[in-house]
Design a protein around this nucleic acid. Sequence first.
RNA 1: GGCGCCGUGGCCAAGUGGCUAAGGCAUCGGAUUGCAAAUCCGACAUCGGCGGUUCGAAUCCGCCCGGCGCCUCCA
Length: 570
Amino acid sequence: MTALSPAHPSLQIYNTLTKRKEPFQTVEPGKVGIYLCGPTVYDKAHIGHMVGPVIFDCIKRYLVYCGYEVTWVVNITDVDDKLIAKAYERGISMLEVAEENIADYNGNLAALGVDQIDHFPRATECMDEIIAIIESLVEQGFAYESEGDVYFDVGKDAGYGKLSNRTVDAMQGEGGGTASRKRGLADFALWKSAKPEEPSWDSVWGKGRPGWHIECSAMSKKLLGETFDIHGGGLDLVFPHHENEIAQSECCHRKPMVTYWAHNGLLRASNATGKVGGRGELEEPGEGGKMSRSKGAGGLADLIASQGGERIRFFLLRTHYRSTVLFNEPAIEEAGVGMETYYRFFKRFERVTGQSIFDLEVPKTRAAGEIDAGPSGLLAEVSELRNKFLAAMDDDFNTGGAVGELFELVRKLNKYCDDHELETESKQSGKVEPFVRGATTLRELASILGVFSKPQAEGGGSSDALLGQVMQLVIDLRTEARANKNFATADAIRDGIEPLGIVLEDRTGGTEWSGGNDETLNGIMQLLIELRQTARANKDFATSDTIRDRLADSGVTLEDRPSGTEWSQG
RNA sequence: GGCGCCGUGGCCAAGUGGCUAAGGCAUCGGAUUGCAAAUCCGACAUCGGCGGUUCGAAUCCGCCCGGCGCCUCCA
């Protein structure tokens, strides 16, 4: 075994192979190679397929932050029995099935902010490498040809079973139709002979295609070398997929394939419809259980559309990657509620400093982010929270613990803002400076998790220009009412728009509004019409005219008819 | 049957030998606000049960109860 680099001073990684946390050492000093098993693209992805990509996206971000040069590979298995079956079923080519689902997969990754992948190899593009490994295994006596198929001879591999902790005797093997071609039940296919109509590649054993497993041995070797640092995947891949990968690669190369095997826990669907107030067991669960495409799980694209990718990412990151996560939409919404705290703080930051928090220059490395606390009590606390955050990440990438520290950090910053009245005082620069430094650290840590890197996508309401103008009118009317101590009217306005999904917040600099959806505009118009009606009834023609004139400025016409007032645009 | 995981406040979830058991959501008080919203402060668990090891355990060991995963395609 080649000597590994000296261990990182604090980073520990849990290794499925040794079943414990180990100090982090690399094959090459300063460099890290990561291989994550990606999807077999015979169908659309479900949320479970995103756990690996999201956590490894964070892992890469963190390793880079710690100063490593990282290469991250995620493979696409685009040749497989299921793809062939799907293509046949739909009357299209295997390639078309693959392209369609790869596009879906890429769209999902982008929505969840997974943008750190360096290589996306496809099995069909690595056929030469795949065949070369199989040939080598046959040559070395670890594999044998049988009626056009090639099988790995598990009995020849003394180390077989070490990852999944099982013995060859205890294994059932594939059995089934090809059992008669195998020497041992546990032997598995490296190459499968093709039937006339099936997609195939030429080989010394005749036309055929690779078995499942071998493509990963070939692609990881091609892009990361014979021995690399981290190999990831879902816990369900430990056996047989990864066990077989190790067998193939290590027998072929006679050296360790991977230093650390990192497996993420699986997601479980949970229909926690009635979680409020306890036992929501009225509706018999039944659909609770493992996420699986064969059980109809899917619709990730729909979920992203309704929840937003960042919420899903944040939801996944709230827990440790090795634990099982019960997943349901209310839980994602709950995570979303927590995220709002940050976005509200970001707005507050802008009110205080006049600049967007997203424009801050954020430290890119662990060393660069060190805080010189100086005399400020705030920065001493920020520094401590930062250390705790990093300690959590050092401890097998414990993003759940890290998120907790991040919440503490926003609270500290909000409190500092309160205590020093940063929003109202004549901003003494000495007070604002540490605040900005602390906020910079918040963004620095968030960037490790891959969240809060840009302004929140404004939903429906706020992006509508007309609604914005109309809301400003509503706010002005209310402000005037408040100035005149006419609180009844002021409250009527707020109470009137609350059901429309809009919340008003009175601040020192003026009133802000947020929320709204497609239905909101019409509701606001009706409210304005009522306000104008009331004003006219009270002979307050100044107000009623103001309403009509300002609406006219925005291109809205009011027409008073016997049946009531109607509005139209344009 | 074999291998393995889990059980921490109403819900989610960090913590795996020793400061007052993080944090989020929810709830209830308080400060603040004309009223709100937001923000801040405070309240809310002794860690499934029993027994053991230890000066000391949620954290280690044993048994029990209760969930779950893999052993077949699966992130």
